[in-house]
Nucleic acid binder design. Sequence first.
DNA 1: GAAAACATGTAAGCTGTTACATGATTCG
DNA 2: CGAATCATGTAACAGCTTACATGTTTTC
Lengths: 303, 303
Amino acid sequence: MSIESAILGLLSWREATGYELKKIFENSSFMHWSGNNNQIYKALMRLREEGYVQSRTVHGGETPLKKIYSLTQAGAEALKNFTAAPPNAPECRKPFLVQLAWADLLDTDGLFALISAYEKELGLHLAMEQEKARRFGAPNRTPREALLWEMIFTNISGSLKSELAWVRSLRQKLFENKKEEEKRNMNYILQKNGTAPYLEVFSLPSPLQAEADALDIVALCGEHEAAHLLLHAEALSDAFFDLKTKTAGGVIQKFVNYRIKTAAVIPLGRQSNRFREWAGESNKGSQFGVFEDAGEAVRWLLK
Amino acid sequence: MSIESAILGLLSWREATGYELKKIFENSSFMHWSGNNNQIYKALMRLREEGYVQSRTVHGGETPLKKIYSLTQAGAEALKNFTAAPPNAPECRKPFLVQLAWADLLDTDGLFALISAYEKELGLHLAMEQEKARRFGAPNRTPREALLWEMIFTNISGSLKSELAWVRSLRQKLFENKKEEEKRNMNYILQKNGTAPYLEVFSLPSPLQAEADALDIVALCGEHEAAHLLLHAEALSDAFFDLKTKTAGGVIQKFVNYRIKTAAVIPLGRQSNRFREWAGESNKGSQFGVFEDAGEAVRWLLK
DNA sequence: GAAAACATGTAAGCTGTTACATGATTCG
DNA sequence: CGAATCATGTAACAGCTTACATGTTTTC
């Protein structure tokens, strides 16, 4: 199993340039070769030598611009052999387990912090993977192929969910009493009644102030598999409303990056003129909106 | 996160030679550096240069024989820093998913075979991991440390179990009708009433004949998390009873490797003199036994 | 007395990453 | 008109694996 097979597969789907392949690798998790020029271009050269792919050069005006690669007959056969080959079990690297192995060195608070940090990291990754899966236009030439790809994405998020479940059981075993304390400070609820679940955040232990706080919320969305978010004004800091600090922009950027559609409910009284203007501009996009009325916000969120 | 941290951890547990560390890495899954001389000896030299470990040389007679490494004060601090560092999410490589991505090329039987092969591979790995966990004498200096290590092993087998559940749901979605056909040919039952669950195998589609067949059974034990096995004579081939073919020895070896305690129920009539002798010798060990009577076999199996 | 395990190291090579180098096109 | 994106490559290096080289001790 090497990057060559993955390239053959992608080319069997659609012809592409090296750069396009790089982009695809970058945006996919299960084809784990992190978008890496060196490997891809070298692999393409090898594959061409072996007669598995062919390329035609597209000229832009005078100079050669790009090479579009496509599969040959031999390549198609090699790919088929690869798909039918005996499969290997997954190989997981979990550096966290190595840390945990010697974490008895830490005191109670240190261990609790370590475990919480891991849980947050997992939530963040889950949100990212779900975003990637939504963004990735999977092959869909037959119903069976569509099902296979759907199950691939299910697999990836499933692994993370099972890891999350594990870390929660670990926390429970270690800190049976302490476990809910933290969460209770965060006043939120997962709303499930509408067309899609959304996270409604009433207030936070400390109001949303920096991008790191935004990531906490993203992780929370990931953990609850919510792609929508309703923020109440009480959860926002004064810095958020002061556009000079650029807090609002940075925070919103995080939500947009993770494709979490967000509505903020903010009474007119707290909106300065400049903020109102900025909000009006934001509302034009479909990813973030500011509303006075909670009902209106929810309608926009779920439409 | 590098092999250095893992070595510091192990040395904080007990002092060891390079060779011993190698053995430990080989036998542990979550410390994923596959028992590799080069890396370990080089890392030990680096660690000594940096003052994190010290070594004393043991002489055997005249010549220096081995170097026993132990942690220094500085090393203990470095380890503590490592355990408290921000944890990273796991990184999983699942080449099977890449195969599956283009498996729409295969016909129904080919796809079914691919998925079954993956399920079997996972079962085998699960059996192996459970074996490793049992064999690994985990640190146990405090109750909390014991719990941490228990949860580490739970994590590893949990990942595989969640993968198994996924592949079964995949199979069901693709082959709702075909799914049970295969298994029905294998006449077995998971007994749960005794002190420990055991797998009772009455017969097989083709009788136990080669080591590969033994691995099928091991995988089945893994999938059902059974560490004990009761084999009826009907599941065994004539070759098994013919000691010249060495089938019996090879098959039993597989069970022993995976630490599956096995009892075979074989009527006296089918046992040749030589076989009886061989069986008597086997019974002395505690891993494999031959019995005439099923009740006796179960008692021995679960004692 | 031979084979397996214990013990320490080195050399060569593969895989994958980061960074570098260069230039065209597109978009705000 | 400057920045981002598209596009193709190369160089250097880190990490890890396989194989080699050597000698002792234990076990069957």
